[in-house]
């Protein structure tokens, strides 16, 4: 464990909690892409199947359970409890254009042709594009609530910090994973436009307009 990975995990946890609390407290999921949240639930489910087969550490197990629990709770709030506030018209990204290519790629490019490894690879590739429906929805509505921008900032920051974690691990532990690094770079690059707007306009905390 290193400082980049720990702060990355905490940033990720903060994003997940911020979103869940925002929806729960405001009793509304307006402006939130349910499709992205479903993709994140799939990412965690396919990545954390090893919860059943291997124990790495208490921290690792606890965080995985929290991530999966919050992801499904968020999906439940959006599609069940506060379904009336779900903005389906603007959440129109065709996720099949993400899932199918990602599924194909994970079968073609992976470290080991075993079910668990292919599912893990699928989750890595899927996570790198899972935010697209959310960014697409914001570009369609032209604005996002301030709390949603903080959610996106923490979410984007987490994988950027993981990039530094991989540099750290390569330097100190001597290994790296090209699949995780390439997907992590793609994932972080997708947030660049948002990061620029968040930083340049964030200070005035007015609704975020593209």
């Amino acid at each position: 464990m290193n400082v980049f990975r720990l702060t990355g995990d905490l940033s990720h946890l903060a994003a997940i909690i911020i979103l869940l609390l925002k929806i729960w407290k405001s009793r509304s999921c307006a402006g939130i892409s349910g499709k992205s949240q479903i993709l994140f639930a799939i990412v965690f489910t396919t990545r954390y199947l090893d919860l059943l087969t291997s124990f790495i550490s208490l921290y690792n197990t606890c965080m995985k359970v929290i991530y999966i629990g919050c992801a499904y709770a968020t999906v439940y709030l959006i599609y069940a409890k506060f379904r009336a506030t779900y903005d389906g018209n603007h959440d129109s990204f065709r996720v099949e254009f993400l899932v199918v290519p990602v599924g194909g790629l994970s079968v073609l490019i992976n470290h080991d042709f075993s079910p668990l490894e292919i599912l893990w690879t699928f989750s890595i590739y899927l996570e790198s594009v899972a935010i697209l429906p959310q960014l697409f929805m914001i570009s369609k509505t032209g604005e996002a609530e301030t709390i949603t921008t903080h959610y996106l900032f923490c979410l984007g920051l987490y994988r950027a910090l993981y990039l530094f974690n991989w540099i750290w691990r390569f330097y100190f532990e001597g290994f790296f994973d090209m699949i995780a690094i390439v997907a992590g770079v793609v994932q972080t690059v997708l947030y660049c436009d948002f990061f620029y707007l968040y930083v340049t306009k964030g200070w005035f905390s007015r609704p975020y307009r593209l």
């Binding site: 090893d50 690792n60 993981y162 994973d177 995780a180």
Partner: peptide, 10 residues
């Protein structure tokens, strides 16, 4: 092939 070395990460 062996599995990804980053399996200990979240």
């Amino acid at each position: 092939d062996t599995e990804s070395p980053m399996k200990d990460e979240l």
